[in-house]
């Protein structure tokens, strides 16, 4: 995809999904580098500020601070933040709420590694051309 690795922050409270995302991204070799993991929205905001990743993958249902709030906080800090929501909440209302909060993409579970990399590639291309 690109000679420059994209730095990813994974925000996810479910242990299996954190593991799965890391495995899927690491399997892509030189394209992505997981630079941080957050288990709730509050941690996500803190880690975003500290790490300034290229892309954030964001769960929505989390304790302490949910994904929608975290997206708003991150975008308040950095309007250029690129956020891909990955959620099992599959109705259009949730997608719309996430996009209104500032998400750049929305990936519904279940998904395959191809669905994930297609979404990430789309975001990378869109944000390179802006």
């Amino acid at each position: 995809m690109n000679e420059m690795k994209k730095r990813i922050l994974i925000v996810e409270d479910a242990p299996y999904m954190r593991e799965m995302l890391v495995e899927m991204l690491e399997a892509q070799g030189s394209d992505y580098d997981v630079v941080g993991i957050a288990v709730n929205g509050k941690e996500a905001v803190e880690k975003y500020k500290a790490l300034k990743p290229d892309i954030v993958t964001m769960d929505l249902v989390m304790e302490v601070m949910d994904g929608i709030q975290a997206i708003e906080e991150i975008k308040k800090d950095d309007q250029k933040a690129v956020i891909l929501v990955i959620s099992a909440l599959g109705t259009p209302e949730y997608r719309d709420a996430a996009m209104r909060a500032g998400a750049d993409g929305y990936l519904w579970k279940p998904f395959t590694v191809k669905n994930l990399t297609d979404e990430l590639t789309k975001l990378v291309v869109e944000h390179q051309t802006k």
Binding site: Y16, M20, A88, L89, G90, T91, K109, P110, F111
Partner: peptide, 11 residues
């Protein structure tokens, strides 16, 4: 799409 629980189990 209507059930977060079933979707998470499947995944």
């Amino acid at each position: 799409r209507r059930s977060r629980v079933r979707t998470e189990i499947l995944m």
